[in-house]
Design a protein around this nucleic acid. Structure first.
Lengths: 187, 187
DNA sequence: TCCTCCATGTAAAAGGTTACATGATTTG
DNA sequence: CAAATCATGTAACCTTTTACATGGAGGA
């Protein structure tokens, strides 16, 4: 049975799909851009790349013929055909309630990598599902919140809970606007 | 040198501070409430409790005299005086830019546990710092966003980036409202 | 040649996940 | 007492963190 693939590994694949690059390039991206919260330590990146290589999802440009196997030179990775398929399959996964409740980061990563990998209709469909699941969850949280607030007066715990709700609501209205814009553009 | 303490461990301590309880109780809390995204697996909770116990930050109610050491009975933990101090020190830690950029969850957890552990002025101060750091970071992200948007047309990557920004902005305005309310109440 | 980046590798330790095991208590 | 549920323990595996090591490339 195949092991499951970590979010970090898909993040690497998504970046490699945009442009073939080396582990060092990827580390710099994680260290300096908005993808800060993925690990940029060599101890996570290089092993992850080797796992992907072992699966046959990425491959490095061939070494020059006179180079030894362990020469420490820049290795530029590109997606293989299999890797591309795996990336698309991950992006297109059906969106579950658990994704919305527990894995919001991964969802946004999947959305970010849609361009160039899946047709725009898939992105619109994703946003529609995203809105639906968020609506449901926000309503549930609102119920819990009212109950919580009637039991306790003004607690920082209650306020912290509220902050989670307003974040969800912000995501929801972002999704609506984003979908409108994608639709406009398609016409 | 002492190992650092994980967020999960502080989450456990915060809950135990609110009410002495067992590992099973804590697992149920993680499994069913808004704290869903902390692990509720026995393989993480029980070892974490033992680490806290080894540090002397929590302690279980004494067993009945005739009970063997490894009887599998409910063990209710409470914070020790040392544990209480450690919890407060964690809550009162100065807020760094990295906290805002990378560890938003942990920040909200600290805020949620302020009630009953630190005076309300500390909560207000926390929110003020929270607002300041968020303002700075949001401004920085906005700059990056405009640059990104002028280079690419409408990409899902750009939209995903925007979703991160609107979430930050939602947090910012939540913090302002929360601070107003705390101030009102104090009068 | 020496120094500084660039680029990759790796070992040890720690925490979390999964899956399974087992003892205690309650309910029918 | 049997079954279900409560409650804890633990072993194997995996990923990440941290820290250090190594080797190539280019400039002074």
């Amino acid at each position: 049975m195949l092991k499951s693939v970590s979010t970090l590994e898909f993040a690497l694949m998504g970046l490699i799909q945009q442009k073939p690059q080396s582990g060092y390039d990827l580390r710099k991206t994680f260290a300096t851009t908005a993808m800060r919260h993925y690990s940029d330590s060599p101890g996570s990146i290089y092993p992850a790349l080797r796992r992907l290589e072992a699966r046959g999802w990425i491959s490095a440009r061939p070494r020059r013929t006179n180079e030894s196997e362990n020469a420490r030179r820049r290795r530029v990775f590109a997606l293989t055909e299999e890797g591309r398929k795996a990336l698309v399959a991950w992006i297109e996964r059906a969106l579950s309630p658990q994704d919305v409740q527990l894995r919001a980061h991964e969802l946004m990563l999947r959305f970010a990598f849609m361009d160039g990998n899946v047709p725009r209709t898939v992105a619109c469909r994703f946003l529609a599902d995203f809105e639906r699941e968020h609506s449901i969850y926000v309503a549930e949280l609102r119920r819990q919140f009212e109950e919580m607030r009637s039991n306790f007066p003004l607690h920082t715990g209650v306020l912290a809970f509220e902050s989670g709700i307003v974040q969800m609501e912000a995501q929801l209205s972002w999704a609506r606007r984003a979908r409108d814009r994608l639709r406009e553009e398609s016409q």
